[in-house]
C-alpha cells in the first residue's frame, strides 16, 4: 500500500527531494500528492516531513527523524555471499562493492558507497538472503546525539 499525504501538508517540498522514484508531486506552498502506482514504500517522505503530514501504507502517522539519525546498513561480511542482491535492491544506488579482494579471498563485498544518498529504507537488509545486513544509526552520530 502506498504512502499518502494529508492536508496537514504545508507544501515545503522536503519530501520531493528525497523520494527515490519521483512519486510526489505538488506546487510549492500547496498540499502534495503521492502517486500510488509509483510509491515503493521506502518511508523517506515520512522521515523527512517536518509537520507529520505523511501516513504509511497502513494509515499510521509517520514521525520525522533527524537526518543524521537515519538508520544505515551495517554489513557483516562473514555472512555475506557476494550475491549483490542488496546493491540492486537499493532504490537510490548508494551501495557498491566496497571491500575488494585480498590474496586469500578473490570475491568483492558490498558496502555503503554514498552515505549521504542513503535514505535508510532498509530494502537491502530485507532482501539480503543471508541476514548479513542490519540497519543501525551510525555510532558516532549516536554518541554525538547523546551529548546533544
Amino acid at each position: 500500500m502506498s504512502f499518502t499525504i494529508t492536508d496537514e501538508c504545508n507544501g515545503c517540498g522536503a519530501c520531493v527531494k528525497f523520494c527515490p522514484v519521483d512519486a510526489i508531486r505538488g506546487e510549492k506552498q500547496e498540499v502534495h500528492v503521492i502517486h500510488d502506482m509509483l510509491c515503493i514504500e521506502c518511508g523517506a517522505c515520512g522521515r523527512i516531513c517536518p509537520v507529520e503530514a505523511v501516513r504509511d501504507g497502513e494509515g499510521n502517522r509517520c514521525v520525522p527523524v533527524r537526518k543524521s539519525m537515519w538508520e544505515k546498513p551495517v554489513f557483516n561480511h562473514k555472512n555475506c555471499i557476494s550475491c549483490t542482491i542488496c546493491i540492486d535492491a537499493c532504490p537510490v544506488g548508494c551501495l557498491a562493492l566496497a571491500r575488494l579482494p585480498t590474496a586469500k579471498d578473490p570475491h568483492g563485498y558490498p558496502g555503503l558507497k554514498d552515505e549521504k544518498a542513503c535514505i535508510g529504507c532498509g530494502f537491502c537488509a530485507s532482501e539480503c538472503p543471508t541476514d548479513a545486513i542490519t540497519m543501525a544509526v551510525p555510532e558516532i552520530k549516536v554518541k554525538r546525539g547523546a551529548h546533544g
Binding site: 557476494s82 578473490p106 570475491h107
Partner: peptide, 17 residues
C-alpha cells in the same frame, strides 16, 4: 589475470572474473 570475481545478480558462486 583475475582482478576480482564477477557475480551475476543473486549469484553466490561467482564463476566469472
Amino acid at each position: 589475470r583475475e582482478i576480482i570475481k564477477y557475480h551475476c545478480y543473486a549469484c553466490p558462486l561467482g564463476c566469472g572474473g
